[in-house]
Amino acid sequence: MTQLLTSINNDHDALNTYILRMADNGLILGQRLCEWCANAPVLEEETALMNTSLDLFGQARNWLNYAVDRDQRLQDCDAIAMLRDERSYLNLLICEQDNGHFADTMARHYLFDVWHRLTLEELCHSHDETIAAIAAKSVLEVRYHEQRSRNWVLRLGDGTQLSHERMQTAINNIWPYVAEMFDQDQLEMELMAQGIAADQTIIAKQWHDLVAQTLIEATLKTPPESYNQMGGKQGLHTESLGIMLAEMQSLYRAHPGATW
């Protein structure tokens, strides 16, 4: 099974690659949020973080099931989640970044949530019916994620001097991973031409407007353009991902063929 997956790791058709990118965003950000368990600043956040993680894993499972339906060689969604190495994961780099402190987590979350919501809204009109259906279901949850993370950007940005500084630093630190969300490779361009993938040029404009508004309201500054980190969608990740996957996959990999 491991060998099988390795051999088809880089052999998905274009549509399945696109589906896996969506799935992996959910898996990886969902996993990051699990790490907050019993570490949150207030009980209400404990439940909210856990709930968001649940939503993201649930969405990931829907995407993965679709990928498996389309390519029987993938067998089942657990094998795809648990047996791929970091070079075969196709999530955006922003999703895998370390939790840091609460402002780091919420900055990462908000910037991703806005992109995620806008992308899913576009995908609701996808010519691929299954994609449209998964997107329609997911977007209801993600709207709520965005509302919540936006609230925290406001509260921390316009809270105390300390929280303001921490949120500004968090935004600055995560900013290099923003551009990748809108960066469309050949594969996405082709799927977009077929009316299947979301058009990131439209989304980028909306995203920048929305985020700029929020940052102003939160008394924060939009970071100046500097360098951008890319490559997650093509399987080129930051070092954070490997360690996280080692933990996530350890039990499954230790018992090949086991039923849980």
Partner: peptide, 15 residues
């Protein structure tokens, strides 16, 4: 967890 969250709760209160 409680101590690490103090600045967050303070910020929410201030906001």
């Amino acid at each position: 967890a409680h101590e690490n969250g103090t600045w967050v709760r303070d910020a929410a209160q201030a906001y």
